[in-house]
Design a protein around this nucleic acid. Structure first.
Lengths: 334, 334
DNA sequence: GCAAGTCATGGTATCGATACCATGGGCATG
DNA sequence: CATGCCCATGGTATCGATACCATGACTTGC
């Protein structure tokens, strides 16, 4: 394999100018005369030159890379968030370096450290609960950090999201207001899924003294959200037969729970309400028609990109908290 | 914001050794005595040192970064592919730099060029049809390129995937074998979605002379797969009332088509079969129970990672074509 | 008409880590 | 005991682009 790259020096020689002029022509064309700009562009085209951003990052101390960490990409709303983020960043000339923690808190510090090795200009974390190791790393690095999907009271620097707790509370209140007496919260068991924790807290808020019941299905390799939902519903009905509503932590679980309920001949929504979270694309399909909470993942990503660009422009974003809210979508299942 | 990073020189001073020894202690610990290794590690911990991979990449001419390009992350199987890829790469000490083309062919060359700016050690492209610009860039860069999700006759270097055409053909044949006479192919209209093109070709192969009918719904901002599926079904029934099967290019479309059919009181699968593609997690849920083609996206990603690591180790991967196949999942809708 | 200022351009040092070569100590071998 | 080799370590040049400062040409204003 050919391992020779054309360098800025080659371009400079071909164009008959100094290297630095080539650099300016590409980075800040306004600082170069129209004449030389043209010569440089011609040489760039002819040689097929692609600037080495790594070298540029080293000398300018600005990498034009933003590191992002998500728990998983396989939840569609996170994928949308990343899309929004990537669109916004690339419009501003920044690139995205992606890592995933797979809900393992001990991986977070490791991944942050790996990302920091690339000297990103900012970091976007899709989570707001961090280990002490992670916090130490972030403090030492001293770069802008933007947290997504939750709104901590005191973000590290800035946060974009909505209140998972309020969303869980509103959904549960809605169920109670429409006559449900014994709603149960259904989730998967994950040590560091604080978004799920907050939704569950919201559920408990709404119950306010009444009996709160929560079931957490342990995740297993090779099984999917709907599997857990189906299994969870079976366990719930076995343990608490009087249950008349299941508040699921995600749409995937809700779809599984809903189908399992129907399979057992339980009348939904007559005898049992089932609600989800996220409003995935199939949630509104008429065979499911799931009552859920709609989150605009792409908007969260876009807003995060906007903040990131501002921070990279030197703006002080500390203390910014942007609440993008959520929307309770009432459909057929509750 | 603090913009000062601890350097290798700082660590060397603190540990009382030379910089180069620190480099070796971190990169190839076996080449350093146990004694100095310990001293270096202690200094690293105390100073909170994180190696600057950018600088390392510049001097070693190996970035330990792999660029990946996908059409979209919002299709769950691509998300799984990326997960598999990322898991495999990070196990081998490589990082993933991600870009997305959003099905716009003219964006591909731009994105490839942007990725090449980071001097990746290899490139993974989730597509096999490239513009001439892209091919020129790849040739000039001369790095290993791995194509996913399709199996071109002559891959640039290596390819991992399955035959979309065979999958489309098998699904259609299955429908014909079970007595369907007038299957219609339903897809979204995207200029460069060659995977959809190949599935459609397979559909035509299976019809072999009989009348092939295909409907392409134009994509619009803010609408989702199920929307297109529902709309597509409506148009199909209006234009070709005798249709007794709809072969959808994706599960998301199939869910929409299925629900729309039911809403119209069409008996599925009695009067109409509906099939999908991808086996998304909710496809198997009993309310849908969709007949579809299952693709192991994560396996494609893992296999791609394996090849990438081999290529980075200097192995010649040219000509490798790995067919991971697919599985026709027969459920209730056809 | 001359000082002051602006603009385009180039030279050189620098960013932080690694490759390459050099060096010196310790050990085995004859 | 001398030779030779290996191992651990360090010095210096280098990767490719940019920051900073300098230079010279040319314009502007009184």
């Amino acid at each position: 394999m050919n391992r020779k790259w054309v360098t800025m020096g080659d371009v400079a020689r071909a164009a008959g100018v100094g290297k630095i002029t080539v650099s300016r022509a590409l980075r800040t064309p306004s600082k170069v005369s129209a004449d030389t700009l043209e010569k440089v562009q011609k040489a760039v085209m002819e040689l097929g030159y692609v600037r080495d951003e790594t070298a540029g990052a080293l000398s300018s101390q600005r990498s034009r890379v933003v590191g992002a960490l998500v728990s998983t990409l396989e939840q569609p709303v996170f994928a949308s968030t990343i899309r929004g983020l990537e669109e916004g960043l690339s419009a501003g000339g920044l690139q995205l370096l992606l890592g995933s923690t797979r809900y393992q808190p001990e991986k977070e510090a490791l991944m942050v450290s790996t990302l920091l090795g690339r000297r990103p200009d900012a970091l976007v974390l899709t989570s707001s609960v961090h280990t002490e190791d992670t916090r130490r790393l972030l403090r030492a690095a001293g770069l802008p950090v933007i947290e997504l999907w939750e709104l901590p009271e005191t973000p590290i620097h800035a946060a974009v999201g909505f209140s998972n707790r309020a969303a869980g509370r509103d959904m549960t209140r809605h169920l109670i207001a429409s006559g449900r007496r014994a709603p149960v919260f259904l989730r998967t068991e994950r040590a560091s899924d604080t978004r799920a924790d907050m939704r569950e807290k919201g559920y408990r808020d709404a119950l306010d003294g009444r009996q709160a019941r929560s079931l957490a299905v342990p995740p297993q390799e090779g099984r999917s959200g709907p599997d857990y939902g189906a299994e969870g519903l079976a366990q719930i009905m076995a343990r608490w037969p009087e249950t008349d509503a299941v508040v699921c932590v995600s749409d995937a679980l809700a779809v599984g729970a809903l189908c399992e309920a129907r399979r057992r001949g339980i009348d939904v929504p007559g005898a049992l309400a089932v609600t989800g979270f996220g409003d995935i694309d199939v949630a509104g399909a008429s065979a499911l028609d799931l009552t859920t909470v709609c989150i605009d993942g792409a908007a969260i990503g876009r807003e995060a990109a906007r903040l990131t660009l501002a921070a990279c422009d030197g703006e002080d974003i500390r203390g910014t908290r942007i609440d993008l809210g959520y929307q309770l979508i009432r459909r057929a299942t509750g």
